[in-house]
Design a binder for these strands. Structure first.
Length: 347
DNA sequence: CATCCACCGGAAATGTTGGGAC
DNA sequence: GTCCCAACATTTCCGGTGGATG
């Protein structure tokens, strides 16, 4: 093993939260104002929206660690905890400091949570809410919205999700969520943030200016850019030049997707690989039928039992939510009712 | 104007897991 | 062990969808 140019991987890791946030002063101020607004009874909600890679999750962690250490926070990653029941179990754990025995009924969990929240007044963060809504509807939010205890509910999602559309009107009207949207970082802001991370993670002068520019302009998604930086830095002993960066693009894109899909099933990854195959094999955009065929072939070659059309249709929606593919929906016309799919230009 | 494309997406059915009660 | 039950992932079923085509 050679020395490499990475002095500290921490600032390049996806969960790293910096000591201070650049270029988000306004959003932070809004969030603080909302969190500290005068108490009222009943649940209080605000919806934090922003494209993937705009730092929604990181900003919230930053804020909640810093400001509200006195308040109890229950963090629900809805892409994993994608049913009301799973989310309730997590909330139960957080508000009681105790693990629920399995076999508890939903109503029993709800009752305990309701009792506990009169005392602890937790902040409940529902990150990647779209996954829960898609899988299980708005039962959880309806339950939370009807509590008469003081709690703060923070749904977090992409800007494509409009709660007024996606929630039953009874849920929406009792939640009345405020809304805060994070804008994309500008190219210059991305450049500065990436430069700062490089200073903390790499040896001096090991990331060339041209490479940094390319990184900053390649994607609006900071997490992807950092992942690419780390991939490039880990594969050289001297310095990240622009050409070395470009060489590692494909590798970085795939490992990024694999990391993202880690919390999902094997089939999600097989599906993504099948999409990669198809994209290379044919120019032009793909339709869900051919994508399914490619997925099935890959399953057969690897001895994995294939899932049904219907199931894979849902998994495609997951890939779309994760911003790994871009999709046009056709509800009829020459092509019939289908989806046209394009791999997101990874970087 | 009828028919067709090619799959969407809701809903019900099925199969599996794991706990509690007897 | 056996029966019952809830939650859950997945399959099965099926009624659409709207421009193009003849």
């Amino acid at each position: 093993m050679s020395q490499g140019i990475i002095t500290d991987t921490t600032p390049l890791q996806s969960h790293y939260i910096p000591a201070s946030f650049q270029y988000r002063a306004q959003a932070l101020e809004q969030l603080r104002a909302v969190l500290n607004s005068p108490a009222k009874t009943g649940p209080f909600a605000f919806h934090l929206r922003g494209a993937t890679g705009t730092g929604k999750t990181h900003l919230l962690h930053f804020l909640l660690n810093q400001e509200s250490s006195s308040k109890l926070t229950s963090y629900i990653p809805c892409h994993r905890l994608n049913t009301e029941y799973k989310a309730l179990k997590q909330i139960y754990r957080d508000v009681t400091n105790d693990s629920p025995q399995d076999g508890y009924h939903t109503a029993a969990l709800q009752r305990t949570i309701e009792n506990r929240t009169t005392e602890v007044k937790p902040i409940i963060v529902l990150d990647d809410l779209e996954f829960l809504l898609e899988n299980d509807g708005d039962d959880l939010l309806y339950f939370l919205s009807r509590l008469e205890t003081d709690l703060t509910i923070i749904p977090v999602s992409s800007p494509a999700i409009d709660l007024q559309d996606r929630l039953e009107s009874r849920t929406y009207s009792s939640l009345q969520p405020a809304q805060i949207t994070l804008d994309l970082y500008t190219a210059d802001e991305r450049y500065q943030i990436l430069a700062a991370r490089a200073r903390n993670a790499l040896t001096e002068h090991s990331l060339q200016r041209a490479a940094l520019s390319t990184l900053a302009s390649a994607t609006t998604h900071l997490g992807k850019a950092l992942h690419w930086m780390r991939t490039a830095a880990a594969t050289t002993d001297t310095a990240v030049t622009e050409s070395h960066l470009i060489e590692t693009r494909g590798q970085a894109a795939i490992s990024y997707a694999e990391q993202t899909l880690d919390a999902f099933t094997d089939h999600h990854l097989v599906l993504y690989r099948a999409l990669l195959d198809q994209q290379q094999a044919s120019e032009g955009r793909l339709r869900s039928g051919t994508v399914y065929d490619a997925y099935r072939d890959r399953c057969r070659r690897t001895g994995l039992d294939e899932l049904s059309h219907r199931r894979i249709s849902d998994f495609l929606t997951h890939l779309e939510y994760l911003d790994l593919i871009a999709v046009d929906y056709h509800y009829g016309g020459q092509k019939g009712k289908t989806r046209e799919i394009e791999l997101r230009n990874p970087f």
